[in-house]
Design a protein around this nucleic acid. Structure first.
Length: 304
DNA sequence: CCTCAAACCTGGAAGC
DNA sequence: TGCTTCCAGGTTTGAG
């Protein structure tokens, strides 16, 4: 289940192969893998063929490769089971789209469940702040997104996605203010990609365990300190996962070389139901929540 | 505007 | 053994 660390591993792996490369041809084996490209497979292939690619960028779980001399990018979302594989030695069983580069390299998009998708998307200027409330107190200094001229903008399909906690321009103060203004449960809020992006079911459970917050704790009862502690826990677990190449349990998530990350060994909450809590030793529980599993310690993470 | 749940998918596991 | 049902979950969409 690729979340921010896994997508970042893919971005870093892909960068040396695609930056400056030219697309020589595109093969589409499964049109449903282009669901995000409304104009259809032929338009996708036509617009990508001959394109010169720039350095890949990421926000949350979205990855994109800007196209030179165009206000457009190749957008990639891995969904549940998407993989980007560079020069694989054998064809993946679930190969959906193949992109051939002029230097002979192959970039394959494989995806068992077809929740992921590719698209060619229009790049828009990065808004100063994605929230529609921005017009209010108008005297805030603009926050530079990156070094000047480095980013060509953000794909239209990513414009509504909040910055992620590893983005230097992420505002901790805004996050704390916005999560406390919500009327929902804390885990739901962490999974809301318009509040903070990049968090999925695994890292939500990990961060809540580390911050000792119950997944169903109402957001309006969180103190500013508690909200800050959750955000720090998110950053900490994502950073450590990135250092270990991401989390994977099976072959569904791998880097561009087809290898799995090692962070699954370091998980403290996710999939640990009936095993002792690593803090207090009591058995962890798994509850069904939002059509997902929620793993936590009833002793360390109490509703308050 | 906000919140929430259904729908989209496959294949491995579990149940019968 | 073979068939059916369940389960995993990120995002979009639309209902209320």
């Amino acid at each position: 289940m690729p979340e921010l660390p896994e997508v970042e591993v893919v971005r870093r792996g892909l960068a040396p192969f695609v930056t400056g490369a030219t697309v020589s041809s595109v093969e589409i084996l499964e049109p449903r893998s282009l669901r995000r490209h409304a104009e259809g497979p032929d338009d996708f292939a036509g617009r990508l063929t001959g394109a010169r690619l720039l350095a890949p960028e990421r926000r949350g779980k979205f990855l994109w490769v800007p196209i030179a001399d165009a206000d457009a990018a190749l957008l990639v979302h891995l969904g549940m089971s998407g993989q980007v594989l560079v020069n694989p030695t054998a064809d993946d069983r679930h190969l959906r789209v193949r992109i051939l580069l002029a230097d002979g390299s192959r970039v394959d998009f494989a995806d068992q469940r077809i929740f992921g998708s590719l698209a060619i998307d229009r790049l828009m200027p990065v808004p100063e702040r994605p929230s529609t409330r921005s017009a209010r107190s108008g005297s805030r200094m603009p926050v530079p997104e990156r070094a000047a001229g480095e980013s060509k903008g953000i794909p239209s399909q990513v414009a509504h996605i909040a910055r992620d906690p590893l983005d230097p321009a992420f505002s901790d103060r805004d996050f704390v203010r916005r999560i406390r203004a919500k009327r929902t449960e804390t885990k739901r809020a962490l999974l809301d990609q318009t509040l903070v992006s990049g968090i999925g079911n695994i890292y939500a459970d990990e961060a809540l365990w580390a911050a000792r917050v119950h997944p169903r704790q109402p957001t309006e009862t969180l103190s500013a300190v508690a909200a800050g502690r959750i955000l720090a826990a998110v950053r900490d677990v994502m950073t450590r996962a990135l250092d270990e190449g991401g989390t994977s349990f099976d072959e569904l998530y791998v880097n561009v070389n087809g290898q799995s990350g090692y962070f699954s060994r370091s998980l403290t909450a996710y999939a640990r139901q009936d095993q002792p809590c690593l803090r207090c030793g009591r058995p962890m529980v798994r509850e069904s929540f939002m059509n997902r599993g929620s793993h936590y310690c009833r002793n360390c993470q109490r509703l308050r």
